[in-house]
């Protein structure tokens, strides 16, 4: 659903992602490359269309935001310079920047880790899942 708010939000996502979703030719190479494809409710190539169509509410609710691995396979291979990974990340940013938008809380951590967990995992997850 496109509303005045979603229009602004879509523009914001396009802006901070630094990409132009209109360049997408719907080839699907991103979705073919994505290792988290199965877990995603909105697939990488669809992300681009959602931004173009300003359907930001659906994007904000999407599980995909939390499954994107930032592995940059789609960024590397996108033939149209759209780089869907950057769009997913921008959408995720707009969510975690809102109040109550965090996907991870410090309280959950002890149950999720073992003795060998490298610090890198925690800082990365905090950066990706929280403001």
């Amino acid at each position: 659903m496109s509303t005045a708010n979603s229009k602004t939000a879509a523009a914001k996502i396009a802006e901070i992602s630094g990409t132009n979703p209109l360049k997408c030719m719907k080839c699907g190479k991103c979705s073919a490359s994505c290792p988290a494809f199965e877990k995603m409710d909105i697939k990488p190539h669809q992300f681009v269309s959602y931004v173009v169509n300003e359907d930001i509410e659906a994007l904000a609710k999407s599980e995909s935001l939390w499954y994107c691995l930032s592995c940059f396979a789609c960024v590397e291979r996108c033939p149209r310079d759209v780089k869907p990974g950057k769009i997913v990340d921008a959408a995720r940013q707009t969510v975690v920047r809102q109040k109550g938008g965090n996907y991870l809380s410090a309280n959950e951590i002890p149950a999720l880790i073992d003795d060998d967990v490298p610090q890198q995992l925690l800082v990365s997850a905090f950066r990706k899942f929280r403001r």
């Binding site: 080839c27 699907g28 190479k29 991103c30 979705s31 073919a32 490359s33 994505c34 494809f37 190539h45 396979a73 291979r77 033939p79």
Partner: peptide, 19 residues
């Protein structure tokens, strides 16, 4: 759908990772 990657497999075959 465009293919993402082609991986050679140990059995000599190829896997085409598509969508």
């Amino acid at each position: 759908g465009q293919v993402g990657k082609v991986t050679p497999e140990p059995n000599g075959k190829l896997t085409v990772h598509g969508v």
